[in-house]
Design a protein around this nucleic acid. Structure first.
Lengths: 280, 280
DNA sequence: GTTCCGCATGAATCGATAG
DNA sequence: ACTATCGATTCATGCGGAA
């Protein structure tokens, strides 16, 4: 039996087996991409990726509540000058397991990895696949509404000199017309594209994705007190986001090194939180 | 035998059959989405989409030069509260036809259609799938370079100074190369995400993509004088882009109404162009 | 105390070289 | 022929020391 607000070190398939059915409200994870993180996961070969992941997604299906959501952050790598198809095949295979493929959000990365090649540009986006067990899943859209002020500010920023040239678009003229759709409203709903920067590598503790990413989905698909699971915890970003939003968390990480890092970061966060609460 | 700089009205499968092998340099198209444009295409059902498209992509494979590129703008629709899988299946099936799935660009729509649903947000992106016949395809990256990000303005005021030092520290053999790459640099290569407004040049119709989209790919994957094909021409945006960039075009459109619209728009553009040329 | 600037560092990919 | 390793390429970001 797993405890709430805990993280476990070990193989997620093993640890998940001691988790009850219909236990968690939301799963957010970023599994190791094919051939990445070879030291902890043995570098799953692209051709073997689906086969490797399916037993895990089967367990995740079991532990997720019927109203819950599963968000998976993934991107196919280039193999032999082509995009590999393991992500496409994974979606098709998970549907056969019973998952509903509800939506595909896009993480548009503000700062992607540099590089230059004769046949392709830098990869500036990743998939955020949303899976559900039923059509009646919990979604709290109002919690992620964007204030019109911010929205306008963001759009105006895009009209800066540089961005005008970058996009080579006529937003200048078309802008007013579209703005008029929103004038008078306090908040607007976001879209299915998230435009965020990756966390910089030389930050104190870099993570695969920025904390705003799990935070956004936690707000959207859960309520305070719900349980958030991340079976590939890494440095603990998902659990950190859960704490900061008053949700319970459950984390699994196979690598001793990442586990210790996550542990210390979470302890630090918790102590700061209780310190803060005691001073109120 | 098809003529350059012409558009044809009829079924693209039929008309393509009279097109020679290895004839066109670049194909850009936005095929009718499943269940859309029901009046012209009989509303292809999502489940029948792949079956309907494969004979067409087979013809396109034949008419494309070995160094050419095929760009297809597509997005799966929502069926029964799920994203349908016909696009994923189409990619897998086209690979079996011999196509290489080189890349997936994202069109991040700046101002997407407003709307609200209980279980999803507004859809602000579409796929731009790149297929090739061989790994050695033509790509002219310099033609689509964009201004460097804002960070450079604030930080690289003394760039030349820095780069001189950087270059001097290296061995003399590389002299000049690195300097020319960086001194006075104000442009960088773009990424695989295109952030464009949905606004299209002519508002008489809907569904078409903005002309900057085909223009970007025409600049990237072809040279002046090359032949650009769009087997689902619609209102003629692709051909218009080709004209404006001094490429030859070839367009096919089944709908009489769209065909006439494209024809008049192209004639107008051509006459303006020749008028402009005669005044030089 | 602000602002400025040098520097290291990436969920990367390709081509060449080596075994 | 086929796999493994390595160097070259690129640009946005945060930290820390300097002005």
């Amino acid at each position: 039996m797993l405890l709430k607000d805990s993280i476990y070190q070990g193989d997620c398939l093993e640890i998940l087996s001691s988790c009850p059915n219909s236990f968690v409200d939301l799963i957010i994870t970023s599994p190791p991409y094919a051939d990445q993180r070879a030291n902890s996961y043995g570098g799953i070969a692209p051709d073997a990726y689906v086969e490797w992941f399916l037993p895990i997604s089967e367990q995740l299906f079991r532990v997720l509540k019927p109203t819950g959501t599963f968000i998976i952050n993934i991107k196919e790598k280039v193999v032999n000058a082509q995009r590999h198809t393991y992500v496409l095949e994974l979606i098709l295979a998970m549907r056969k397991q019973g998952w509903l493929w509800t939506e595909e959000f896009i993480w548009h990365k503000k700062n992607c990895h540099p590089g230059k090649w004769p046949n392709r540009f830098r990869d500036a986006w990743e998939r955020l696949l949303q899976f559900n067990k039923s059509k009646q899943f919990n979604m709290y859209q109002d919690s992620v509404m964007v204030p019109v002020g911010d929205w306008a500010k963001a759009r105006l920023k895009n009209l800066s000199e540089t961005d005008k040239l970058r996009d080579n678009s006529k937003v200048g003229s078309g802008f007013g017309k579209n703005v008029s759709n929103w004038v008078g409203r306090d908040k607007v709903y976001p879209t299915n594209v998230l435009y965020l920067a990756t966390e910089c590598a030389n930050k104190a503790h870099s993570a695969a994705f920025p904390i705003d990413l799990p935070k956004w989905f936690i707000n959207l698909f859960s309520q305070p007190g719900d349980i958030i699971l991340d079976p590939f915890l890494g440095s603990g970003t998902t659990a950190l986001a859960a704490i900061q939003l008053s949700r319970h968390y459950l984390g699994i990480e196979i690598s001793e090194q990442y586990f210790q890092l996550a542990k210390s970061l979470l302890e630090k966060e918790s102590s700061q939180l209780s310190l803060f609460e005691s001073t109120i």
